[in-house]
């Protein structure tokens, strides 16, 4: 746990699949930086249907409010952190 030495930017996949998904829709397509990596934990998308959950890393990703909501947001430099499973994240450049 703890901060990584080098900022690692990731983009949340912009998919909209059906099923039990723990990736909030408002974060799909957004770029953030990995704050810490947890797990591995069994994939909840499989557990929800009583399948064996594949163990996956769970990343805490930090986004700026500007990245999520655009420049008209309340305070652009405020931040939001959420837990996103590894299969929802692609490498990205800094926003």
């Amino acid at each position: 746990m703890g901060m990584r030495p080098v900022a690692e930017f990731v983009r949340v996949r912009a998919d909209m699949p059906p099923g039990h998904i723990r990736t909030p829709a408002y974060l799909r397509g957004k770029v953030g930086v990995i704050e810490r990596t947890l797990g591995p934990f069994p994939n909840p998308e499989q557990l929800a249907y009583r399948h064996t959950g594949t163990p996956l890393p769970l990343h805490r990703v930090r986004f700026t409010m500007q990245e999520i909501w655009g420049p008209q947001t309340e305070t652009p430099h405020d931040t939001l952190e959420a837990e996103i499973y590894a299969h929802w994240l692609d490498p990205a450049d800094a926003p």
Binding site: R22, T23, G39, P44, D78, T79, E81
Partner: peptide, 15 residues
């Protein structure tokens, strides 16, 4: 104040 960062934690998964 504006110079205090607000950080929201969305408890989306296991933590």
């Amino acid at each position: 104040p504006d110079n205090t960062e607000v950080r929201v934690h969305d408890s989306t998964a296991d933590m």
